[in-house]
Amino acid sequence: MKAFTLDHAPNADTALAAMGQGATAIAGGTNLVDLMKLQVATPERLVSIRRTGLDTIGYDGDGLRIGALVTNADCAADMRVRQDWPLLSQAILAGASPQLRNRATTGGNLCQRTRCGYFTDTTQACNKREPGTGCAAREGFNRIHAVLGTSEACIATYPGDMAVALLALDAVVLTQGPFGLRQIPLAMFHREPGEDPSRDNVLQPGELITAVKLPAPTGGRQVYRKVRDRASYAFALVSVAVDLTMEQGRIARCALAFGSLGTVPWRDPAVEAVLVGEVPSPALFAQAAEILLRDARGFGANDFKIPLAARALAATLAQATKG
């Protein structure tokens, strides 16, 4: 770890001022501190935003506004979330461990970085960590890597669960930065790597997440299915978030998002389009999977994610459309 300074900002404006002078925001630190120990991240100046007061949950019209500093544990346990947006609660509880969820925050979780073993090992080539060095994962041990949205430069996944649920729920990320306030739909928040994998999301330098806004509840059936190597404390191999409404035996409305499948939380309108208006059946689910995975490409050790995603989707749709 490199030497660094740490200041506590009493409010968002102070934090933004510090960030404007080059400080890196730190909230729970569950990811950033690990990366600092490995010198994958080497900030010289940290500004803690834990005392900025952005840690409340409140209604916002029919929707819900979740402060950036609300911990994952508090968000998952919130009665409003559990009743009307249970998908979010399920997704959060599927991730990490109780200790981490007590510390990790809503904004920080959205910004967590990939767990690609080549990204976290400074002896290895990684365009995300060090642009221009290459991607050692493409030809390496890439079992946990993406099959959608990859580029020559990078095949790393966004690893989290919470963002996948937020994507299916049409959440919006609220930010404050040098150019004022922004409302960024979750679907636009994370960046596919393209030629520049170093930036995971569209946040500008000095821009701070202040809250996440959920639109009015859909009243649909919500299921988060996380497929993983062990029963807890493991990142998803594939996850599926669905929010779906049945009417007269047909799928009337459907939002689907996928985790650990793409380089970003993945949503594909064409998949939802093929399902809406149809009577659920294994054949329909297979058709949806075919559309989802039409451009999927494996890199060897992660080839299995393609059939696995189809299977996870079928199981999730069968569960959400049953009875």
Partner: peptide, 25 residues
Amino acid sequence: LAFDTRDGHLVNHDLAEYHVPVHAD
């Protein structure tokens, strides 16, 4: 243990990616 056979380096060298059973297992 996952070794990269190009240079023999160990890819999963921590308890997050080297999966010992957790309580839920």
